[in-house]
């Protein structure tokens, strides 16, 4: 990569655009970014070259149509290093909830002539279709995460895959535990670090927008939630929301609880 500037693309699939804002919300540092890399394709910021060969592609959003599949394969073929950005791209996002519902019904209830809407059977994360070099988790990911990734790649080293549990970050920031002190059903013990432990920091329980951490014990947490008076449906809502297509969050903790009791 020495000499010529590193070529970067930012692509979007089905999403809310929130993860791309990790770039656009950098403030004045955005100008430094423009200087350090060549932004070849980033529709929202201006440059349009979706089909060009690049060093690094960031991909936001989940795949939900046949055209999406073709597009992601082309992006993969054109990219040296492919990074998925956020829950939609790495774990389906909120829209993947439709995977567990009757789709025909859903579309019909929102659109009068559902025939014109062509959807895939399931919303899938990018890694289900093509090889992904790094997954950045979060809904949304933040500027610190994308900067760390970009800077690592520019320095020629492997970006860090942050897999610790949120609780560690929470303790390091010396927040009072909302689960222990207030009995809130905090998802910190199974959630991936990276956000800065924002929710416990303002006295609320984490709702796992950063997805699953490594080596988690969902059923144990599910059982604990049932002692906090959550019913099985409420427990499953805790796990099945923003990262519902993440295999680590798919077993039904509620069913587990029922069996154990």
């Amino acid at each position: 990569m020495a000499g010529a500037k590193t070529r970067v693309a930012v692509h979007k699939f089905s999403s809310c655009d929130g993860c791309q804002l990790a770039f656009l919300n950098m403030g004045e540092a955005l100008l430094t970014l423009f200087e350090q890399v060549e932004l070849v394709h980033f529709a929202e910021a201006g440059p349009l070259n979706p089909g060009t060969v690049v060093d690094i592609s960031f991909v936001e959003g989940s795949l939900s149509t046949a055209a999406d599949l073709q597009r992601i394969r082309a992006i993969r073929a054109n990219s040296d290093f492919l990074v998925t950005l956020g829950a939609c791209a790495t774990a389906g996002g909120l829209q993947a909830l439709r995977n567990i519902a009757d789709k025909g019904d859903w579309v019909a209830s929102v659109y009068a002539t559902p025939e014109t809407i062509s959807l895939l059977e399931n919303v899938t994360p990018i890694s289900a279709q093509v090889k992904v070099d790094l997954e950045i988790h979060g809904c949304p990911v933040n500027s610190r995460q994308v900067t760390a990734t970009l800077r690592s790649l520019l320095a020629g080293i492997t970006p860090l895959d942050e897999r610790d549990k949120l609780c560690l970050e929470c303790k390091r920031r010396q927040h009072v535990c909302v689960m222990v002190t207030q009995g809130m059903p905090c998802m910190g013990p199974v959630t991936r670090t990276g956000c800065g432990a924002l929710c416990p920091g303002i006295g609320r329980d984490c709702y796992a927008c950063y997805g699953a951490a490594e080596n988690i014990n969902m059923s144990s947490l599910g059982r604990h939630f049932s002692t906090l008076q959550l019913n099985p449906a409420q427990i499953s809502h805790r796990f099945v929301s923003f990262n519902s297509a993440d295999p680590a969050f798919t077993p039904e903790p509620a069913a587990d609880t029922a069996r154990d009791d």
């Binding site: 900067t147 760390a148 970009l150 800077r151 690592s152 320095a155 080293i157 970006p159 860090l160």
Partner: peptide, 11 residues
């Protein structure tokens, strides 16, 4: 004594 050397953004 030692210094902490920081590769910007990376660690």
């Amino acid at each position: 004594q030692f210094n902490m050397l920081y590769l910007y953004g990376a660690g």
